[in-house]
Amino acid sequence: MPELPELDPIIHGKLRLAVLSLLLPLEEAEFTWLREKTGSTDGNLGAQMQKLEEAGYVSVEKRFSARKPQTAYRITVKGRDALQNYIAAMRALLGGAL
């Protein structure tokens, strides 16, 4: 019997998965935009973004625009690969259910 693939625990978290998927077709997105799209709180999103950053799945850039601080996130190549592997693993797990 073939071994079932394991799902990446960093990506499997619902909010982290949503953020990575949002970032996938984007060059970059601001923290406030991600918060609005996911409907999460500052604290929760901040904590999850830190986990993604520590895993090397997103990169962060802090800057000022019109004197206001901005935090912009980008998905990294590692994050892109991880998300693709995660989707492939899910499809393998689901098998005939799809």
């Binding site: 499997h12 619902k14 909010l15 929760n44 689901l94």
Partner: peptide
């Protein structure tokens, strides 16, 4: 949207959760 699923909850995901 909250991250209600802990990091260790990937051991036995059911089909509904995966879909």
């Amino acid at each position: 949207m909250t991250d209600s699923h802990s990091d260790s909850q990937t051991s036995s995901p059911d089909s509904a959760q995966l879909l």
